[in-house]
Measured scan of single mutants.
Amino acid sequence: KRYRAVYDYSAADEDEVSFQDGDTIVNVQQIDDGWMYGTVERTGDTGMLPANYVEAI
């Protein structure tokens, strides 16, 4: 699945990823209600991200 960031996010922990509004997130997997795991296409960084900061595309 592919998602697009709708807000900027700065990683708060080493297992999270930072991204900017408009970034595409690929290979996304749902972890639980609030978190997903995926790769930021622009940077190649992979990690956890907050589900409410992205939307499906």
Rank of each mutant, 00 (worst) to 15 (best):
S18V: 02
E41T: 07
N52E: 12
Y7C: 15
Y9H: 06
N27K: 08
G22I: 02
D33Q: 10
M36N: 04
Y7Q: 14
V54D: 01
D13W: 11
N52C: 14
T39K: 08
Q30T: 11
G47L: 02
A12S: 11
L49P: 01
A12R: 15
A5K: 02
T39W: 04
K1S: 11
E41Y: 07
A56G: 08
F19L: 06
M36T: 03
A56Q: 12
A51R: 11
M36F: 13
Y9D: 00
T46N: 06
E14L: 11
I31S: 07
Y53L: 12
G22T: 05
V54Y: 02
Q20S: 10
V28G: 07
G38W: 01
L49V: 10
V6H: 07
G47V: 01
L49A: 04
T43P: 02
Y37I: 12
E41Q: 10
E41A: 08
T46S: 12
K1Y: 09
V28Q: 03
V54F: 07
A51F: 08
D33H: 11
I31E: 06
E55R: 12
D13V: 10
V28K: 03
Q29P: 00
V28Y: 04
S18A: 05
E16F: 08
K1D: 09
V17D: 00
R4G: 03
D32E: 10
T24D: 07
M48S: 06
A11W: 03
L49D: 01
Q20K: 14
E55P: 02
Y37V: 10
Y37N: 05
G22F: 04
T46W: 08
D8V: 07
I25Q: 00
V26D: 05
M36P: 00
F19I: 05
K1W: 09
S18D: 06
I57R: 05
A5F: 03
N27V: 15
G22S: 05
E41L: 13
S10V: 14
A12G: 10
S10N: 13
P50S: 05
F19E: 01
P50H: 08
D13P: 03
P50A: 05
E16R: 07
A51E: 07
D32R: 15
N27Q: 09
G22P: 02
W35Y: 07
V54K: 01
V54N: 01
A51M: 11
T24I: 15
A12C: 14
W35C: 06
F19R: 00
G34C: 15
S18H: 04
N52W: 10
D23L: 03
V40I: 08
G44H: 05
V26K: 08
E41I: 08
R2A: 08
R42Y: 04
G47N: 01
N52F: 10
Y37G: 02
G34V: 14
D45C: 14
A5S: 04
V17W: 01
Y3F: 10
D15Y: 14
P50E: 00
Q29I: 15
Y9Q: 02
I25W: 02
V40M: 02
G47P: 01
G34H: 15
N27E: 09
